[in-house]
């Protein structure tokens, strides 16, 4: 029988964090950006069925990177949490802040008590009546929460893409502009001398929370709609 070695708490947490960070960096990035009429989400994801971006409630959406089975489980839990709240109180009482707290507790508890942390990073976004009341929460594998302004890039080479997006993003841009910024960043090459990728609509998963839509603000942009979005204004408003 081998003797258990003493491992300092610092080392234990560092090992777990390194493990989770490595898992998250392996996947492809998701970019979340505010635009004048809402919040846009974009990711390189050729699958039409396995989503990284999803609707949680009327004005709330969820984006995730990392291990699919783990964030899918959190997504379903979030939908259940939101629907239960809305059913018990009222639809307006479901907030991104409450959901972000529930996720933070869950991620934090798993990080400290279970044998393996969740290899996921999440964004919970809520679209408000105007850009100032929009909320963007970023949650990491250890349960820490940060409220972000403007844009978030997570997963893959998040730091490099974040810098690219940061150079171009400004408050109040229309949807087509922020999507172009996101798509350019997602297709940018990691090394000098390697040409950037031109991502076609079929390789992208794109969705928006459109504040001008009446109840459910979430809308996926696919196919022709996505292609057209890069040239039109407010394509997701109801006619």
């Amino acid at each position: 029988m081998s003797m258990p070695f003493y491992v300092s708490p610092e080392q234990l947490m560092k090992d777990r964090a390194d493990f989770a960070r490595k898992g998250i960096a392996r996947g492809r990035s998701v970019v979340v950006l505010q635009y004048d009429d809402g919040i846009a989400f974009a990711s390189q994801n050729p699958s039409r069925a396995l989503h990284k971006i999803s609707e949680i409630y009327d004005r709330i959406a969820f984006a995730a990177v990392g291990k699919y089975n783990e964030f899918e489980n959190l997504r379903v839990a979030g939908v259940r949490y939101a629907d239960l709240r809305g059913y018990s109180y009222d639809r307006v009482d479901v907030t991104a802040r409450g959901l972000a707290n529930a996720y933070a507790q869950t991620l934090g508890t798993v990080f400290t008590t279970e044998s393996k942390p969740l290899e996921v990073e999440l964004v919970v976004a809520e679209v408000g009546a105007d850009p100032i009341s929009d909320q963007l929460y970023r949650l990491t594998y250890d349960g820490s929460v940060a409220e972000e302004q403007g844009y978030v890039v997570m997963g893959g080479q998040a730091e490099r893409l974040g810098a690219l997006v940061g150079e171009q993003w400004r408050p109040g841009l229309p949807l087509s502009d922020v999507l172009q910024i996101a798509v350019r960043a997602l297709g940018s090459s990691p090394e000098d001398g390697v040409p950037n990728l031109e991502l076609a609509p079929a390789q992208l998963e794109v969705a928006v929370l459109d504040r001008t839509r009446p109840r459910r603000a979430f809308r996926r942009l696919t196919g022709d709609l996505l292609t057209a979005t890069l040239g039109t204004e407010r394509p997701t408003a109801d006619h």
């Binding site: 489980n73 959190l74 379903v76 839990a77 949490y81 529930a102 507790q105 869950t106 508890t109």
Partner: peptide, 12 residues
């Protein structure tokens, strides 16, 4: 006990 979402929420 921990404040995390209960099992009913995360049961697939």
């Amino acid at each position: 006990s921990s404040g995390r979402l209960p099992a009913a929420f995360t049961t697939p």
